[in-house]
Nucleic acid binder design. Structure first.
Lengths: 136, 136
DNA sequence: ACATTAAAGACTCTTAATGTCTGTAATTAA
DNA sequence: TTAATTACAGACATTAAGAGTCTTTAATGT
């Protein structure tokens, strides 16, 4: 049970795009180079983010991607859901109603998700920028 | 990203064993029937629980399994760790030091684990027993 | 010795993830 | 209009892990 590499790449991409100035479009090549990935593979992941409404894409010459400005305050959970879907980590194999074990497992999962929902990309982007200035 | 079926079976087995009286040994056949599994497959899972110190096994005629009495207050997290291991759900694919994304993901994961550690099998066993009496 | 139990190991099958490659669609510039 | 550059979609191959079956070995009581 691990987060997929695709989720990993998506999160790094989203933070990078959040840091970009205003309406600047970033092409898949730049995003792929940043993480040493192939552009075609990353492109698949980016398409999911676009379908999830987290980024906006512009095809054609001078095209690229930018963070969605209609979607305010993107959280970590938003990104994870766009890539991995929103299914529960645990479903009782016995399928009995009101399984007490399932209740516990779901409650714990909710705790994690609540934390993920409270953490915004913009917060991380600001912190990353602050770190950059510190290093100089 | 989902908990394995094996974790599911293990949790149900552990609750069932917790409910049992005192030193009673329960054979793999009974445990497998309870969940409509093959005994040989469940046996593999039970071996992991035994290796993790959560249950004690007695081989041979009249053998079987029982909850470990040297391990006090078994939690949900104990069972999960015995079956799935104790590795993190998220490791940064870029391997850079102090990855801010990784920090967030790990923190959220810790929230879930803290909840799982606070929930004891004995608590669920008591509740399951209380439900049984209510139904009669 | 025999029967009953747990444990170990070999094996098969399925599925999802990972990633590559190719072709199509959309846009800009010449 | 054509060519170049971009995003998008689909087909494909590989691999690893999980799920589960089957057989054999080891341990115990009668």
């Amino acid at each position: 049970m691990k987060y997929s590499n695709a989720t990993n790449y998506a999160l790094h991409t989203m933070v990078y795009l959040t840091i970009q100035e205003g309406e600047k479009l970033v092409g898949v090549q730049e995003l792929a180079d940043m993480q040493r990935l192939s552009p075609t593979y990353l492109s698949k992941i980016l398409t999911k983010l676009a379908k999830g409404g987290l980024i906006e894409s512009t095809p054609g010459a001078k095209g690229g991607y930018k963070i969605s400005r209609t979607k305010h305050e993107i959280s970590f959970l938003d990104v994870i859901n766009a890539i991995e879907g929103d299914t529960s980590l645990f479903d009782c194999t016995l399928h009995h109603e009101g399984c007490l074990i399932e209740n516990v497992m779901r409650e714990a999962e909710e705790n994690m998700k609540t934390e993920l929902k409270s953490k915004l990309l913009i917060d991380i982007a600001r912190e990353a920028e602050a770190r950059q200035f510190k290093g100089k």
